[in-house]
């Protein structure tokens, strides 16, 4: 029987573990230190714990870090790592080195339930929520871990659909007893699952990136089924309930589709929708996926769009595309090939 992973437990969960084993309370802080500051891979490496404590811990637990199975490297230096989860499913994480920052894009689910028309991850359906251990393992087991300056939850899955584990992972990354990172080094994306988004805003300090892709209800419904339930309009209303302060950032991600959402009407619609929200907009070039009815807007249109929004006071940038040749770019992560077909379908 496999042992329970210690990596991914919050300090209060570690306290509960050591209490149950009858170990001194301070052991939990020592374990957190070994896990999240020194990133040891075995309990035996926790050398300031008594031999008895290590023995007891070893009987029930393991550290639970798993190295990536493989990686691919893009011509632009982006690396895409493949990790196996506890139940033999797979996720991807993309490492994006730049001159002055190195970002890791991590997954929060195996697959995704949200079914966005333009997304490769959606094509594989939903397999499972990642545990906190599996979310953090993508950071902890990354060969370039020490070089990381930023983490973005923009890989496979909808983070707000796995909000408990996402919040726990953020607690570990940002707590003094954990990685002790500033929450400003972290950006979490969502398509706008409003109740969980509210929890995220209230219970964490990390930046928020919202996948918008259209300001118009009927059109957004065609691109993103979530719009049937949680509309962009309601999402904006919810955001207006909060004071984000000067440091915390809200950004809107906007993939530009030729002839669909790239007109002057859309600029106007965005300006109306985002009125009163202090935010920035990131325009993203669409990376075509097989059999997609969508095409990316050309760069001239994207520049026009950027300039029009900028002129009206919304900081707008065109996001540089990274790792397209290895399917590591935005919306392209997928481990569908590694999934066994479910023959017991109802459709």
């Amino acid at each position: 029987m496999s042992k329970e992973a210690l990596y991914g437990k919050t300090l209060s969960e570690l306290k509960a573990c050591v209490k149950e084993l009858g170990l001194p309370a301070f052991t939990s802080k020592q374990i957190a230190d070994w896990l999240y500051k020194k990133h040891v891979t075995t309990i035996d490496d926790m050398t300031n714990l008594s031999k008895k404590a290590r023995l007891m811990l070893n009987e029930q637990f393991e550290v639970g870090l798993v190295p990536p199975q493989s990686f691919q490297e893009s011509v632009d230096g982006t690396k895409k790592y493949l990790f196996q989860t506890n139940n033999h499913q797979f996720i991807e994480a993309a490492y994006l080195p730049e001159d002055n920052r190195n970002t890791l894009c991590i997954s929060s689910q195996v697959g995704c339930k949200m079914g966005c028309l333009f997304c490769m991850t959606a094509r594989q359906g939903f397999q499972k929520n990642l545990t906190t251990n599996e979310i953090l393992n993508q950071i902890a087991s990354l060969p370039e871990r020490e070089t990381l300056s930023n983490v973005v939850y923009m890989g496979m899955g909808e983070p707000m659909d796995n909000i408990d584990n996402v919040l726990k992972s953020l607690e570990i990354i940002t707590s003094e007893w954990g990685y002790a990172w500033s929450p400003r080094r972290i950006n979490v994306s969502t398509i706008g699952v409003i109740p969980a988004m509210r929890r995220f805003i209230e219970e964490s300090e990390a930046h928020l990136a919202i996948s918008l892709h259209s300001p118009f209800n009927e059109e957004r419904k065609q691109l993103m089924p979530i719009e049937n339930v949680y509309t962009a309009e309601k999402m904006i209303e919810a955001l207006k309930d909060y004071d984000f302060g000067r440091q915390r950032r809200i950004s809107f991600e906007y993939i530009m589709f030729k002839g669909v959402n790239d007109s002057a009407q859309h600029v106007k619609g965005l300006l109306q929708l985002l009125d009163g929200i202090k935010c920035r907009v990131n325009l993203i070039h669409f990376h075509p996926i097989p059999n997609s009815p969508l095409e990316g807007s050309d760069y001239k249109t994207m520049e026009y769009f950027r300039d029009k929004l900028s002129q009206k006071g919304i900081t707008t940038t065109i996001r540089k595309s990274r790792g397209e040749d290895i399917y590591a770019a935005c919306g392209l992560l997928s481990t569908k090939k590694l999934i066994q077909e479910d023959t017991d379908k109802d459709f």
Binding site: C112, K113, M114, G115, L117, A122, R123, G125, F126, E219, K221, Q222, P225, N228, V229, N291, P293, L294, D342, K345, D346, F347
Partner: peptide, 24 residues
Amino acid sequence: SQMVIDVREILISKGIPFDNIIAE
């Protein structure tokens, strides 16, 4: 979601414009 994705892909391959497909 898997039904929606599979069906949507088939409909698009059959020439249904994506803006005629609404999914929950």
